[in-house]
Amino acid sequence: MSWKEIWIAFKAVFIKEVLRFSRIWIQTILPPAITMSLYFIIFGNLIGRAIGKMGGFQYIDYIVPGLIMMSVITNSYSNVVSSFFSAKMHGNVQELLISPTPNIIILLGFVAGGVARGLGVGAVVTVVALFFTDLNIQHPIMTLLVVILTSFLFSTAGFINAIYAKSFDAVNIVPIFILTPLTYLGGVFYSVNMLPPFWRDVSLFNPILYMVNGFRYGILGISDITPTATFTLLFVFIGLLFSVAIFLLSRGIGLRD
């Protein structure tokens, strides 16, 4: 395929993905907005008043970056895993497999769809957050980079999950039993510096901690982790997962037999 044709193929996959989650916005966009509103009301306003300040900020201000990042992570992941798994189960992934669209474009198309939903939901949650607090973004470029790279990373992870999944249970295992606990323990609601040294050190093995803190640094200017550590981790994980996804696609594992 020529570069122009490759670009057209990418757009086709991306548009299809965006139309897919847009068509079912009541299932994809609205629920995170409602859930996050509840978080802001309960944890931010009601419980937050009792907690007082954290890291020099009102508690509601402190948790906003983490809550936005949480919705970006879960939506990026679930968009790709559900879309690609459905395509696999219903057979319409064959539309792509028989076409000359390169594997990397198939992957990038789905991942871009996941990023679009992740960022879309992130934007909606940010708007909801503005009803409860003011946001003065300290480092806009870093904020944007961290959120895009994180969304990219979890979209790719969702793609790998979908390739291996053989049932809808397998699609839900990772988000429920791995992603959600890691997110909750990833410093969304607290600073890891509050933990005893042993648990603080254990927390450093949680990759989500780096993303949440990187995003918090971008918005509030404070973080438990250095920006360099955040970007290093993001690039290493993206490189690793993207390579795995391309390898699986090119071998046709879970797709071609």
């Binding site: 395929m1 020529s2 044709e5 193929a9 086709a12 548009i15 076409s99 000359p100």
Partner: peptide, 15 residues
């Protein structure tokens, strides 16, 4: 129509 047009896209055909 979307099913067919998307398939065209996978072959590099403009929308």
């Amino acid at each position: 129509i979307e099913i067919i047009v998307n398939q065209g896209g996978y072959y590099g055909i403009q929308r």
